[in-house]
Amino acid sequence: MSAPTTSTPTTTTSAASFWRITLAQTRAELLMTLRRGESLLVTIFIPTILLIAFASLNITKVGITFLLPGVLALAIMSTGMVSLGIATAYERYYGVLKRLGASPLSRTELILAKSLSVLAVEIGQVIVLTLIGAIFYGWRPSGSFFAFVVILLLGSLAFASLGLLMAGALRAEATLAGANGLLLVLTIFGGSIVPASAWPGWLATIINLLPSAALTDAFYGSLTPSGVSLGSLILLIIWAAIFLGATIYTFKWE
């Protein structure tokens, strides 16, 4: 260490403006997301590979019009629940969240920055997946762009809240295992990739009530002329409210 001749004046500074802090934090969150190799694997490669595999092999006997909404729902889950949940859990474990609590960065700014970073990754996912669908499998959008954006935001809110719910209540290792495990279960039994109708009736009934099925159904509605069904919209809102409420109630910063 050098002799402390460098000036460290103790004049009091004030906090930077809300948007400057939020943008700086968003930049940092994105940078860290891009650096986590395993996070990119789960957010970009797995949905892409699933889309290509299921569309090419036609295992589930549904066309790209049915398959793409499911893969998009899976992409939202991987970014909101898995990637955000695990990253936040480890930030809590390493005491980063606690340290931020004594800085001028407010909770609102931190949560907004995390949301913006999640949305940026999701926009990337949507572009990659829809382009693959359009170029290789002849998918054409025929719904409402506005409805699609609303469902994207609502689905992100629900699954990002679920990720933070785990991150704020469980140990980091438990969040890591739980979020990945849940993604695997929802991929198979969530009514997104494999349609609920492929399972026995009683199981299909349960699956149709899951947030993953609701998001898939709502995406499907927004991307086809049929429009978003009221049932899936309400179900998605209910799940988002439950996860958000539980997160606010249980989240521990330390």
Partner: peptide
């Protein structure tokens, strides 16, 4: 208060990947 204080906790609280 927060913009006026500097804090060093027992746990460093640094982003490990940064």
């Amino acid at each position: 208060l927060r913009p006026q204080i500097g804090v060093m906790l027992q746990q460093d609280g640094l982003y490990p990947t940064m």
